[in-house]
């Protein structure tokens, strides 16, 4: 565990807390993509199957449970909470899951480090995480109504990815034989996905304007 990894995980955790607080405090999930949240739920379930088979540390176990629990809480609120679900932008959040899930699944069947159920699902989760934010970004662009908290949520998620890249560089330099090419490439792709958003986020912050993405 190095500082970049810890900061990355904490930023990831903070992003989810921001989203939970926003939805809970405003009783509204306007601007939040249920598709992205459900893709993250798939990512976490597929990746954390090893909760039952492979104990790494108490820290890892606790964080995994928090990520799973918080994501399912958000999905539950957006689908079933009698006040919150009414505020969901159902008609705008139309990105199709299969466009992301099927290519990632096929890729994980071809490109993996071991052809076992656990390993293929783990690899699938790595690929899917790289693109899971896309429905959220599309929704933002469509509604063009980005409140600060939703903007901060996405900014924190992007920051978490950038910190993970620093973590990999640090580990590569300090741990002998540390290599994980599939994770690195997916992680870099995932971070690139945020660059456009970062540009507009920082620009709006510098100009003290409300964040909006060009159509």
């Amino acid at each position: 565990m190095n500082l970049f990894r810890l900061l990355g995980d904490m930023t990831h955790l903070l992003s989810i807390i921001v989203l939970l607080l926003k939805i809970n405090a405003t009783r509204s999930c306007r601007g939040v993509s249920l598709k992205t949240q459900e893709l993250y739920a798939i990512v976490f379930v597929c990746r954390y199957l090893d909760l039952f088979t492979n104990f790494i540390s108490l820290y890892n176990t606790v964080m995994k449970v928090i990520f799973l629990g918080s994501t399912f809480t958000i999905i539950y609120w957006m689908r079933f909470h009698k006040v919150i679900r009414v505020t969901y932008d159902r008609d705008q959040d139309t990105f199709r899951y299969q466009f992301l899930i099927i290519p990632c699944l096929l890729l994980s069947l071809i490109l993996n480090s071991e052809f076992t159920v656990m390993e293929v699902l783990w690899t699938f989760s790595i690929y899917l995480e790289a693109v899971a934010i896309l429905p959220q970004l599309v929704l933002l662009q469509r509604t063009n109504n980005i409140d600060n908290l939703t903007g901060n949520y996405i900014f924190l998620l992007g920051s978490y990815r950038a910190l993970y890249i620093l973590n990999w560089i640090y580990r590569f330099l300090t741990e002998p034989n540390y290599r994980q090419y599939l994770v690195w490439i997916s992680g870099i792709v995932q971070t690139i996905v945020y660059i456009d958003f970062f540009y507009y986020y920082i620009r709006s912050w510098k100009n003290n304007e409300k964040l909006s993405l060009p159509a």
């Binding site: 990831h12 964080m63 390993e119 290599r179 994980q180």
Partner: peptide
Amino acid sequence: EDVDFGHDEL
């Protein structure tokens, strides 16, 4: 072999 690495990350 990179199986052991990465699985210790979240």
